[in-house]
Design a protein around this nucleic acid. Structure first.
Lengths: 214, 214
DNA sequence: GTTCGGCTCCCCCGGGAGGGGGAGCCGAGT
DNA sequence: ACTCGGCTCCCCCTCCCGGGGGAGCCGAAC
């Protein structure tokens, strides 16, 4: 028989870790090789290179699970599989975990056998239950929302005005909505145009859409 | 011990079905309860209500696996879990399967143990490896691309002009690009506005973005 | 054969948009 | 104290946009 899968547990709650450790340790083909209390620990453990699957909590002090996952996938070519574990299946968490490069998402209320099955499954294969392709998809849609330099250095007001313009409002409507003069709105939009390097309102709205501002 | 999971196999290739049937039949906790050769069979079998997991091929005559999945999820409240099985992990297939409401995606080259694990996992739980939340996400992004009545009854030319407008081009630029008069472009855009029920070019571009035309 | 819808172009006209100025206020940083 | 950038408002001017007409051409449908 092959050597057991090496599992690392990352959770800020000692109790949770012990529980998981007990469950996993009872399995002959699984072994808890490391434990950590936050994202920094996770990164260090992942760097050690002797881990197959990392069970990662989301809410943790210092560096949370999502960011830790991000760093690990960004930094390590040979990284452990990462299963993000949390209490609630908040859509946002799932999405963020996906984008960060996690291999799976588990709920703490998951039944024991399912947890074990998921760990074994994710360790062995990447072709089951929405893996690689989905992650590429998520990464692609995520990339669209990053690295749009222009949008970043808009002032608060300018972003606000642009957002309303991107809802189809006219200058006068925007002015009324924001309790401003129509001329002021025009001024803001003008700086938006120059900052974004576009010609008119339509192109600005397009830029807003493409950069994920809308 | 509980009664075995009831599996249905849908594939147009007799050989594949037999292979899967043999593998699955050998497991004490699994049982092949039905087989079909296309999407129509799949729908009938799903309607019978005595199936836990449906292994569904994508490429099939008459009605393919994606459409069958769509119909089943649309029609049946109490539906079997559906695992879409195919030879290549074409991104498009994965995405379509997801949108259609499939619970998972498998490759035919998947190892036997993984196939069995996936079947057992998907039958029991919905909280593992990107399930419900992801499907809602996919459904949401999909919905944005459908059922935008306005966009549908634009004429060919009007759609063309709108698309260029949505790239930030002015009327004159669009005219030059399409070898038209500037007035013609205006006319087309005007009908676009009335058909989409919008006021100006900006709102039209927004509609184009929201409806997935861009 | 007539009608209807899509496609093409034209004119006029009003209004909003965008550019170019100028100006005052305020808070933060030098 | 001064400067600089963000926010606010104003005027003028030009240009494109959008609305409201009208008109001719064509192919399909009735």
């Amino acid at each position: 028989m092959t050597e057991p899968l090496r599992i690392a547990l990352i959770d800020d709650e000692e109790l949770i870790r012990s529980g998981f450790a007990a469950i996993i340790g009872a399995e002959p083909d699984l072994e808890v090789c490391a434990q950590g209390a936050d994202g920094v620990d996770a990164l260090n453990i992942a760097r050690s290179g002797r881990v197959d699957v990392l069970l990662m909590d989301v809410r943790m002090p210092r560096v949370d699970g999502i960011e830790a996952t991000e760093r690990i996938t960004a930094e390590l070519a040979e990284r452990p599989k990462i299963l993000v574990v949390t209490t609630f299946d908040n859509d946002d968490y799932v999405w963020q975990a996906l984008r960060a490069g996690a291999d799976g998402f588990l709920l703490k209320r998951t039944k024991i056998e399912d947890l074990l099955a998921a760990v074994r499954l994710v360790a062995r294969t990447d072709a089951v239950l929405f893996p690689e392709s989905i992650r590429r998809l998520a990464a692609a849609t995520a990339k669209r929302s990053e690295a749009h330099p222009g949008i970043a250095d808009l002032s608060e007001r300018e972003r606000e005005v642009l957002q309303l313009a991107a809802k189809g409002m006219s200058n006068t409507e925007i002015a009324e909505r924001l309790y401003l003069g129509r001329e002021t709105v025009k001024t803001h939009l003008s700086s938006v145009y120059t900052k974004l390097g576009v010609r008119d309102r339509t192109q600005a709205v397009i830029a807003a859409y493409d950069s994920g501002l809308v």
